[in-house]
């Protein structure tokens, strides 16, 4: 009789054995966690009415489970007992034992701590994201206040207010919606005449400018130089098209149907450690020609 086992069967047996071991570790972890919770409840281990067992029991359960798993099967099990203890303590502590407990800042902070003990990675991620969002909101509010103050200062001085364009991901969707500048019924030409057309009136110099604030920290994030360059190029092209669009509005307002000697100028007007500001100015002579 052949007593040799098939390799696949051996592999399956090892897997089953490991699963069983994991189950034992989870159970041991849960038991330790429950014991710690019981000790905390019996000894009234409280701070401001909050039993520290809510934090200590999931922590100890997870620690014991992970320690055993690492020692005997050389891998972690995801601290399942910690999550079980979280559910047990919340159900017992918040619903069964103390149903009148209201929602207040202390409750919220304690809840975060409990959740953090049960699912550290997820909660840490949420906390970090929330912090970022809060900072972004503060930054946005600060910018809006600064913008409104700047506008008021310029209004008082009688100087025009120029907004610096800061591109973000959303602008790429706007970018696609920009109309083709040559489809607006105005001829944009770099030449000094339009062959075969009679210029009826010269309306004078027309100029449009925009400023592109380019975050170099964002650019440095790209490890690939090509990507870094293409991102900046896309931004430059977008701001240039927007400047041409602004120019077309000026021309339309004055009933021009063409602009000659068009000149596009790019100037770096400010270099800071983290960003640079590029001025994009377009200048030309507005005309009215006989179509």
């Amino acid at each position: 009789m052949n007593t040799e086992k098939h390799p696949k069967q051996i592999e399956q047996n090892i897997k089953d054995n490991t699963r069983l071991k994991i189950l034992y570790y989870v159970l041991i972890g849960t038991a330790v966690g429950l014991f710690v919770y019981w000790i905390c409840l019996v000894t009234h281990f409280d701070i401001l009415g909050w039993n520290l067992g809510l934090i200590l029991s999931p922590l100890s359960a997870g620690y014991v489970e992970t320690h055993l798993a690492r020692r005997y099967i050389k891998k972690t099990t995801g601290a399942i007992s910690s999550f079980i203890l979280f559910l047990v303590t919340v159900i017992y502590g918040f619903i069964l034992s103390n149903p009148s407990l209201g929602l207040n800042p202390l409750t919220l902070i304690a809840l975060i701590f409990i959740l953090q003990s049960a699912t550290p990675r997820t909660v840490n991620y949420i906390l970090i994201r929330t912090t970022f969002i809060i900072f972004q909101c503060i930054h946005s509010i600060k910018d809006r206040i600064k913008e409104s103050i700047d506008k008021k200062i310029h209004k008082t001085k009688g100087t025009p207010y120029v907004k610096i364009i800061e591109l973000n991901k959303n602008d790429y969707t706007i970018k696609n919606n920009l109309p083709d500048i040559n489809d607006l019924g105005i001829i944009f030409s770099t030449t000094n005449q339009i062959s075969g057309k009679k210029i009826v009136e010269y309306k004078g110099i027309y100029e449009s400018k925009n400023f592109l604030k380019y975050d170099q920290k964002e650019a440095i994030k790209y490890k690939d130089i090509e990507k870094k360059g293409s991102a900046l190029l896309k931004d430059i092209e977008f701001v240039k098209n927007r400047t041409l669009l602004d120019l077309s509005k000026q021309l339309k307002k004055d009933n021009c149907n063409g602009i000659l000697e068009l000149n596009i100028q790019y100037d770096n007007i400010k270099i800071e450690k983290t960003y640079l500001i590029i001025q994009i100015s377009i200048i030309g002579t507005g005309i009215v020609y006989e179509d």
Binding site: T190, Q216, I220, L232, Y266, N268, I271, K273, L276, I278
Partner: peptide, 12 residues
């Protein structure tokens, strides 16, 4: 036709 070269500088 016009071709222009502009140095953008910066930490790049």
């Amino acid at each position: 036709l016009k071709i222009s070269y502009d140095n953008l500088g910066g930490t790049m």
